[in-house]
Design a protein around this nucleic acid. Sequence first.
DNA 1: CTGAAAGCGCTTACAG
DNA 2: CTGAAAGCGCTTACAG
Lengths: 321, 321
Amino acid sequence: VGTSVASRVLNADPTVSVRPETRERILEAARSLSYTPNAFARGLKTARTMTLGLVLPNLAYAVNAEIIRGAVKQAEREGYVVLVADAEEFERAGDAYHRLLQERRVDGMLIASGTRGRAIDGLTSQPLPFVLVNRREANVGVSVSLDDAAGMRLAVEYLVGLGHTQIAHLGGPENVDTAQRRLAGFEQGMTAAGLGVPRSHVVHAPFSEQGGYDAGQRLLATNPRPTAIAAASLASAIGAIAASRTPGLTVPEDLSVVGFHDAPIAEYLNPPLTTIRMPLQEMAEVAIGTLVKLIGGASVEDMVISTPPELIERGSASAPT
Amino acid sequence: VGTSVASRVLNADPTVSVRPETRERILEAARSLSYTPNAFARGLKTARTMTLGLVLPNLAYAVNAEIIRGAVKQAEREGYVVLVADAEEFERAGDAYHRLLQERRVDGMLIASGTRGRAIDGLTSQPLPFVLVNRREANVGVSVSLDDAAGMRLAVEYLVGLGHTQIAHLGGPENVDTAQRRLAGFEQGMTAAGLGVPRSHVVHAPFSEQGGYDAGQRLLATNPRPTAIAAASLASAIGAIAASRTPGLTVPEDLSVVGFHDAPIAEYLNPPLTTIRMPLQEMAEVAIGTLVKLIGGASVEDMVISTPPELIERGSASAPT
DNA sequence: CTGAAAGCGCTTACAG
DNA sequence: CTGAAAGCGCTTACAG
């Protein structure tokens, strides 16, 4: 029972020709010893690690938890295992960065963090396949993202349909591309409705409760005060609602708020949060699929997940009174 | 410039003796070529992959996001990289399971999911070091966990201090060990205060908003109705508060609620949620440290993080009226 | 149809 | 002080 035939049989090499008898003996032996090939030895020989790297910004954002979940699931289906790195660490000293890229621990990378940092620089200067998830920018590799603009347009259309005309945008960080697209969607929606937007009704804030709270306060201090807010995240929508309580406003009677992205908690808030559900998990899965194709040598293109966003109507928006 | 001396110099082998001159030449060459050793080749030779596996249950729980965060951070400090697996997948077909364990992709495992499943079975039948995080059970390996009982006692003491006597426990799933310890802490606190607990005032529910909502409804239908609820999670506390709105109860006037674990969102809820902050990140870091020691051959013991839990007083609990 | 041999990129006794 | 050699566990032309 030569080791070479064994290897070929176990890997189902199509070019091998063995007697059914020999094959059976090999399979049986492998089974009884519960043989599993050593991944490192195999990786060394084949130069395929069957490992994917996933660089994530702050895991505290629910969005990222969804991405990691979808990525791990899909990677598994494709036969890959996933290594995670925290973007903060990754950017900083770059020790994990070295590990993943230079040490050849991965066949490719999925980047969910910003495109401006060292991660991308290192990547582009190297022949390692990578794809950006939930991130899109010209000339920095393949990206798989959501139709953020469509999602935000949906929010605006809904608010307009309710009768609002003073609609503000609680946007994300100015330099984050998803935030930019949501803002664009907001402007598209307002323009399509023939509505103007005073500059003071568009604010930028981190995707966090605190960020939403601070920005919400600014928005509510404007004159005229908006009767509705289309927020660029779930967390900032929650923060804005909290901000509205200080001046004694009630949601949705005095102020309608629509969030962006959905999570179980939205339904249990007071009031329950009306929000835009985006196909996040699908995005992560497609991103992994795209990365695997890229590794396989296929040429792939930027991709925007076309599954339409959905407005989940709950209690935080109503007709203006 | 022999490859062997080079290897020894670059790895700072203490037994090597080279002329400073040679050493300098090697270092310089490595630098200019930006040489990084291939992890797989090294792993194959040394039988150390410098990779740790992390098996997580549902990432949707914020608790797990904190664990993964702390784990990745600490692993990095110790020179390790981390591979994540979804517990659901892991338990089911066990394909990822094979990958991680049998293929020798990892030097050790951190298990944050239940101890009853296949994961543990496979682990104990194998010589691979592993430690359980936020999980504790007799005779299933080393575990690093929090003092859940102390945390829950703190919640009870606070409620008792406020003047409550009808305090209910919105517990976690009956078969989850963290939930069991929180329940024990609840009982200890009540006993210490000389308070009795009707059976109907202790309910079990999933650690989710929905679970808390359902269980909250049951609790509020009891007679006498509790004036306070000590919940075993943040999500279920939020669900319980939502449930209290249906019968028209107001928190905290009609019902005080204390959650377990803290997250930024708690502060922005209506009312802001009073909760017990537990040292989650520290737990994850210590768990990684423990695992690394175990891999190093040290004998380690179960560990309960002793950093005291903290009660974060916000607006969801007050004196009974 | 089957096996001996080379080699993936390292580390580490061992010999000069 | 330095280098040649073996070997980690695989896969894969190549020769019988």
